[in-house]
Amino acid sequence: MRTIGAGAVSASLTGAAMVAESKPGPPEKILDATDTVKLKLNINGVNYAVLVEPRWTLLFVLREAIGLTGTKEGCGRGECGACTVLIDDIPRYACMTLAVEAEGRRITTIEGLMTGEELGPVQKAFLEEDAFQCGYCTPGQVMAVEGLLRKTPEPSMDEIRTGVSGNLCRCGAYHHIFRAARKAAIRKTR
């Protein structure tokens, strides 16, 4: 796990052997149910200020408030993985994350893997290995693989399978997805 910003954790447990730290969240904020508040979100390196209701999910804000529609809504209940984004480099379901909880974090969506009009290494590998049919789950699959490779640059096939085990593909392109993940890993570490 990341350790930046964990000063408060270390301070509170001085002298103790810390082995895992998650970053404490941003400071207290009280929002009324019917209010919209201005929320600052860092998405793909860009700071956005958006008006949100407390009940809005990160997925809703990405798609409907900001217009980043690469992230897809599938089940909307944390089961299919189509909405996978990276938060501080870690894959999470945007449909199960309140936008207000993502404040102060670094959010990466499928759009953030592009360099201008050029696809990122994971996207390219998916294209070359034919790792999709209908393509609806693909942004989530790509983000799950991207998150896996940021943490485990040279994953075993088992680690790849586990890495995308939170993403369903109704077309059944799994074998091609595994191959794409392996190819992307080789390309990224080369």
Binding site: A6, V9, S12, M18, V19, A20, P24, P26, P27, P54
Partner: peptide, 18 residues
């Protein structure tokens, strides 16, 4: 539920120590 109380800003609740 009419109020959600986030525990995410409580730093003392994160981490594992011996």
């Amino acid at each position: 539920v009419n109020k959600v109380v986030s525990l995410n800003a409580l730093p003392d609740l994160h981490g594992i120590r011996e």
